[in-house]
């Protein structure tokens, strides 16, 4: 049981990172369906850097950078050129999967170098790691998992307790009103979308460097899309996103764990996708004011047409 929960956290972490990335996008009023693409770009870049430099830090940095590049394309098209957000996001996903399988063509099956693997292996935290059960599950993890704990609370603080978080909310809810009180709408959108891209890239890097840790084509296998759905499940709240991600992380690995022939592995593999639909349906049905999407989600902002 302990090892199952331990693995759940690992499987849930990339989901959380990309979910939080999408939350940043959506808070700024942009529906970014390119999560999968940015993750794939981050995954291949991180893996390639790990292979090339043998340095875990550089590998992670490269993941983040490539996620940002993907996000920058999306941001430039949707903010500056006011392109359709849905189609731009889809294009980004296709772009990312094209780039990752193009670059990763000769990498299939290759594994992450030992030095990088060692650096990113679980570290037991002093004191906290000694707590029975919980210490094993939560505090004997790799550094990115710890980073994601901090990130969840930092993001919640940013959204709900700071001035700029409030401004961000205004940008997503009504950019015209935000502009009227001299909030720089484009700047807020750019910064948050790029930060979101960084998280998606990191999430992809986590998959290729730690979770798998080897290269396989289409390594994300739909996790980016689950993240988009998790945003609705989490009602745009980073802490709920963390819980949701662990729930789905558990569903993700259950197929591996239960292999007694009683139920086919392929049906268990369907679970995350099926549960996404069910949860999405339940949450769409009882949508209250508190967990509704930003009002201007998916709409372009034309400053010239105020």
């Amino acid at each position: 049981m302990t090892s199952f929960l331990h693995a759940t956290i690992i499987a849930g972490t990339p989901l959380f990172l990309s979910t939080l990335g999408e939350i940043l996008n959506e808070k700024a009023g942009n529906l970014n369906l390119g999560v999968e693409g940015m993750m794939l770009m981050g995954a291949v870049a991180g893996f390639l850097a790990a292979k090339g430099t043998n340095n875990a830090f550089l590998a992670i940095l490269c993941s983040i950078l490539f996620g940002c590049i993907g996000a920058l394309i999306y941001a430039f098209l949707t903010i500056t050129l006011r392109a359709n957000q849905t189609v731009t996001g889809l294009a980004l996903t296709i772009f990312g999967s094209g780039i990752s399988s193009f670059i990763g063509q000769n990498l299939s099956g290759k594994v992450v170098p030992d030095r990088v693997k060692y650096f990113l292996s679980p570290i037991k935290l002093p004191l906290l790691g000694d707590i029975p059960f919980l210490g094993k599950v939560f505090f004997t993890q790799d550094i990115i998992v710890y980073f994601s704990y901090i990130l969840a609370f930092a993001a919640a603080f940013y959204f709900y307790k700071t001035r700029i978080g409030l401004n961000l909310k205004a940008v997503g809810e009504n950019p015209y009103a935000a502009d009227a009180v001299s909030i720089n709408v484009a700047l807020y959108k750019y910064v948050n979308i790029l930060a979101g891209g960084a998280l998606c890239g990191l999430s992809g890097g986590y998959l290729s460097l730690i979770y798998v840790p080897a290269w396989q084509n289409n390594i994300t296998s739909g996790r980016g899309w689950i993240a988009v759905a998790l945003v609705i499940f989490a009602a745009w709240n980073p802490c709920k996103a963390l819980l949701g991600a662990y729930l789905f992380g558990g569903l993700d690995i259950i197929g591996f764990r239960i292999q007694d022939g009683f139920i086919s592995k392929y049906f268990l593999d369907m679970l995350p996708y099926l549960v996404t639909i069910i949860i999405l349906t339940l949450f769409s049905f009882k949508r209250s004011k508190k967990n509704s999407p930003p009002k201007f989600l998916g709409l372009p902002y034309f400053r010239e047409e105020r």
Partner: peptide, 22 residues
């Protein structure tokens, strides 16, 4: 040349058309 070049070219065409719309 890996055939995923087609995917990249497709998405580039799409990006460019999307940017041109305005």
């Amino acid at each position: 040349i890996p055939n995923s070049a087609a995917l990249i070219l497709q998405s580039l065409i799409l990006f460019c058309i999307l940017s041109s719309e305005i």
